[in-house]
Measured scan of single mutants.
Amino acid sequence: KFGRVHERAEGPAKILAIGTATPFHWVDQSSYPDYYFRVTNSDHLVDLKEKFRRICNRTMISKRHMFLTEEILQKNPNLCSHNEPSFDVRQDILVSEIPKLGKEAVLMAIDEWAQPKSKITHLVFCTRSGVDMPGADYQLIKLLGLSPSVQRVMMYQQGCFAGGTMLRLAKDLAENNKGARVLVVCAESSAIGFRGPSEDHPDNLIAQALFGDGAAALIIGSDPKMGLERPIFEIVTTAQTFVPNGDCHLALHLREMGLTFHCTKDVPPTIAKNVESCLIKAFEPLGISDWNSIFWILHPGGNAIVDQVESTLGLEPNKLQATRNILREYGNLSSACVLFILDEIRKKSGREGLKTSGDGLDLGVLLSFGPGLTIETVVLR
């Protein structure tokens, strides 16, 4: 008597548009150690500064975009301390800036989509910054002038794996609601975790050397309108798992001094060791076991992770080039990073006149991972 209210779509979910945005301000990685130790009044920690310089040199990052300028840091000195309470200051900045950054990426996506924004039916927003109620999803709806009846899902504090999570959720929403057009937004800022150095917490140096700011937005829907919408990728399958006891290797915690970062040297080999089982589960039903026969979007948690995944799986050097390019130009953008790589690989395919948006290949994989050593596996066509 009370059956399904919403009719299912006929076809699989497809990515119809991609937009990205970054803050205008950026830092050069080669000179960042001098800048970082100067603005945090830590130049007296000579040995720690040299250690940080070595870490920065190993990241293979060229530059990173950041909202925090020297002027902002001078006005808010607690942000430059390692342990002073600064959460309220971070909140005041990020509750406002995260939706604005997301808006810039959304406008780029809508411009490519070339359809009225009134056709957006759902919003899925993800960030690890600016936790608030009502959330960044609500603020973004107002900034864009979208209908208050847009169906919203707000996900805070997920971390680097969440780019894949957003695709998984959007696929379910698009395929189970005929005519749905799902706006996916990942907006991230390193301002939540920026803090001064400490000899007692070397993990913090890794975070300060890796993370950048950026937002990515996608429009996802099934059954694209012929002649009006141009699909870029099809989302074939999605899956999530985590490595048992992985939280002892990688975890982040909200504290009075901001978001703290805990990471062990076992993260790269542990991820590399567990990736292939995810690939087998995803691609065995499709008859694929040659990992060089697919295109790759791999989250660059750090250069060591990229190198070890490449080595463990025997990947050809060009397979992870898009990942390395984004890491070099932006650093680790947390949940937004794989979506930047997705954009990079389709643009490169277009520039080179390849037959598909995925490096000329039919199928590919998007792998994202993060806290708890959670792994998201997304098969794309």
Rank of each mutant, 00 (worst) to 15 (best):
L361G: 09
V124I: 05
L363C: 04
V267E: 02
M108K: 15
A282I: 00
F67S: 07
I326R: 08
L279H: 01
G364V: 00
G135E: 01
M133G: 10
L140D: 11
A136F: 12
D28V: 03
T374G: 14
P23W: 02
H299S: 11
C278I: 12
C337W: 11
I294K: 07
L107Q: 14
M108S: 09
L313F: 12
R351D: 02
I141E: 05
T270W: 13
S349L: 10
G102W: 08
K265A: 12
H44S: 02
I120R: 11
G11E: 07
G135V: 08
H25C: 08
F233G: 03
V131F: 05
I232E: 08
A251I: 01
I61W: 04
V338Q: 15
P300V: 01
V46C: 04
V243P: 04
L101H: 09
T22M: 07
I18H: 15
H249T: 14
M66I: 03
A322L: 08
L333I: 09
G301M: 13
L123R: 08
L101N: 07
G314M: 01
L313I: 01
N292K: 12
H6V: 11
M133W: 07
C278E: 14
F233W: 03
F87E: 15
D359P: 06
F369D: 15
P23T: 09
D247A: 13
I61T: 10
Q308M: 13
T312W: 07
D111A: 12
D111Q: 11
M60F: 00
R346W: 01
H299P: 14
H262W: 12
G302R: 00
S118H: 02
R324M: 06
I375K: 15
F295G: 05
N332E: 07
I141R: 02
C337Q: 14
A21S: 06
Q321W: 10
R54I: 00
A105L: 02
L68V: 10
P268A: 11
T260D: 15
K100T: 08
R54C: 07
D266H: 05
P317M: 00
T312M: 11
L123I: 12
L367V: 02
K319G: 02
Y330D: 01
P116L: 05
K49E: 10
V306G: 08
D307V: 01
D47G: 11
H82L: 06
T59A: 11
P99L: 14
E276Y: 01
R381K: 13
L333W: 14
I288A: 04
K49D: 08
G130S: 10
V309K: 14
K142C: 00
Q321R: 07
L342F: 05
E71Q: 03
G364R: 01
L354D: 15
E256D: 13
S30Y: 00
G370D: 15
V131R: 02
D43R: 03
F340G: 09
T260F: 03
D47C: 10
T20E: 02
L48Y: 00
N274I: 11
L143F: 10
S277E: 13
E310G: 06
M66V: 06
F24E: 12
K348D: 00
M60G: 15
W26P: 12
V131L: 13
V5G: 10
R58D: 11
S118F: 07
E84D: 10
N332L: 01
T238R: 06
S42W: 02
K75Y: 01
S42N: 06
V89E: 15
W113C: 03
I375G: 13
I326N: 10
L315R: 05
D88L: 08
K14D: 08
A136C: 12
L48D: 00
I345P: 06
K100C: 14
S31R: 08
S334P: 09
V243R: 07
K119S: 11
L79S: 11
E284A: 08
G301W: 11
H299T: 04
T377H: 13
S129D: 12
N303K: 10
R90E: 02
L250E: 09
R58E: 15
H253N: 12
I18W: 02
F369G: 15
V275C: 01
G360D: 08
H25Y: 10
D34T: 10
E276D: 05
F87L: 12
S129I: 02
H82K: 14
P231M: 03
L342K: 15
P116N: 03
W296P: 12
K281W: 03
P300D: 09
K119W: 09
R58C: 12
C263Q: 05
C278R: 05
D137F: 08
N41L: 01
E10C: 08
E310Q: 13
P134D: 08
S357Q: 04
L48H: 12
W296E: 04
L228S: 07
L354F: 05
S277D: 10
L79G: 14
D92L: 03
I375P: 14
M60D: 08
L279K: 05
K117A: 10
V309Y: 01
V5I: 11
R255P: 11
R381L: 00
N292S: 09
F242E: 13
F67V: 13
L373A: 14
L279F: 06
S289W: 05
A282Q: 02
R4W: 10
P99Q: 15
F242D: 13
D362I: 00
L252R: 11
V236S: 03
L143T: 07
F369S: 15
L320G: 04
F295M: 04
D359A: 01
V338M: 12
D247I: 00
P269Y: 13
T59R: 02
V95D: 08
L228Y: 06
P371K: 09
S30N: 04
P268K: 02
K103S: 03
I93M: 11
A13Q: 00
H44R: 12
T22N: 11
A304F: 00
L146R: 05
E284L: 06
I375V: 10
L298S: 10
T374R: 10
R4G: 13
L313Q: 13
S277W: 14
C263A: 14
E256W: 03
K281G: 10
P371N: 06
G370W: 11
N303A: 14
L373Y: 14
R324Q: 07
L339P: 11
I305N: 07
L123P: 02
V106W: 06
G353W: 09
G358K: 05
Y330G: 07
C278M: 02
F233Y: 12
K51V: 10
V267C: 12
G358T: 04
A13P: 02
D92I: 01
V243M: 04
E329N: 01
S81P: 10
E276S: 12
I326L: 00
N245Y: 08
K281Y: 03
L367E: 13
D359R: 03
Q308R: 03
G135T: 10
L144S: 08
L101D: 02
A272M: 10
I61H: 14
S129E: 13
S81C: 02
T59E: 04
S118V: 00
L228Q: 06
E112F: 06
T270P: 10
Q29E: 04
Q91A: 05
M60R: 14
E10R: 10
L143R: 09
H262D: 15
H122Q: 06
L342V: 02
M66G: 13
K347G: 02
I98R: 04
P317D: 00
F2G: 07
D132E: 10
V5W: 04
G360M: 06
E344T: 02
T20N: 02
T237C: 05
R64K: 08
P85W: 08
T264Q: 06
E256L: 05
P269L: 11
L342E: 12
M60C: 15
L339C: 05
Q74S: 03
D247C: 05
L144E: 02
G246V: 02
L286D: 06
S147I: 02
R53D: 02
V243F: 09
F52S: 03
T69S: 12
S42L: 09
I120A: 07
T69Y: 11
I341C: 12
S289I: 01
G11Y: 04
P371T: 09
E71V: 03
I235T: 13
G301E: 15
S147K: 03
N41E: 06
F125N: 04
V338L: 02
V243W: 09
V89M: 01
V306A: 11
L354S: 04
I18S: 03
P317R: 12
G331I: 00
Q308N: 06
R328S: 05
E276T: 10
A13W: 02
C263R: 14
I18T: 02
K281M: 07
V275A: 05
A136P: 09
K49Y: 00
S289P: 07
G258C: 09
T323P: 05
